[in-house]
Design a protein around this nucleic acid. Structure first.
Length: 195
DNA sequence: ACTCCGATGGTCT
DNA sequence: GACCATCGGAGTG
């Protein structure tokens, strides 16, 4: 398999993130998350599943009862990370969307490893390639995202999401979001149909 | 294949 | 004191 080569010139611009959250959640599918961890080492993965968390009519969203210390990144202007700590154990990463003071984001739920596999294996403490990035907390662990990365810009050469010219080559499915009890029936989960 | 459950801590009522 | 946008291991069939 050919090694994926990241290219900051193909990074999604801030405008991409300012669109309605559901649209961003769909449009992130197939894109490549890129994190530079040293001078010539990149971690890259194709986003394959996302969930939208809205600023209105969405009781499952962390922003549903207003701004707080935990969720304040969600109220920034789109194009940064919102990282949260959950179940006393895990971190999960979101992409903040829309304009400032709205309170919305897209959870990155699954991805496909493209580059930096040996680091994913080390960070995840498993060498099962199908078990590296197939869950939101697994992605955070594999990329070593923690609260230090909350508010990080996605518009820098060391952290960005880039276009993928291959992206017409898949179908998008929609479903209910995972692991929530409030607003549980909203069709706000999006994923690439397998093969 | 599946269901169940413990881990473990920050945030909010 | 309850609730969590989860994961992995144990138990069962």
């Amino acid at each position: 398999m050919e090694l994926f080569v990241p290219n900051f010139e193909l990074a999604l611009p801030q405008e991409f993130y300012l669109a309605p959250t559901e649209e961003v959640a769909r449009n992130l599918l197939g894109k490549i998350l890129v994190k530079k961890i040293d001078a010539n080492t990149y971690l890259c993965a194709q986003i394959t599943e996302t969930e939208a968390y809205l600023h209105t009519n969405d009781l499952a969203s962390h922003s549903a009862s207003g701004k707080s210390k935990r969720n304040s990144a969600m109220f920034e202007k789109g194009g940064i990370l919102y990282v949260y700590f959950i179940y006393g154990v895990h971190y999960c990463i979101n992409v903040v969307t829309e304009e400032e003071n709205k309170g919305c984001a897209v959870l990155i739920r699954k991805a496909k490893p493209l580059r930096g596999i040996e680091f994913f294996i080390k960070n995840r403490k498993t060498d099962n390639l199908n078990n590296l990035l197939n869950g939101p907390a697994k992605i955070a662990q594999a990329f070593n995202f923690t609260l230090k990365d909350n508010f990080s810009s996605l518009l820098t050469p060391s952290l960005f999401i880039q276009k993928n010219f291959d992206e017409e080559n898949f179908q998008i499915c929609t479903g209910k979001r995972i692991g929530i009890t409030k607003s549980a029936d909203l069709p706000l989960r999006f994923y690439i149909k397998e093969k």
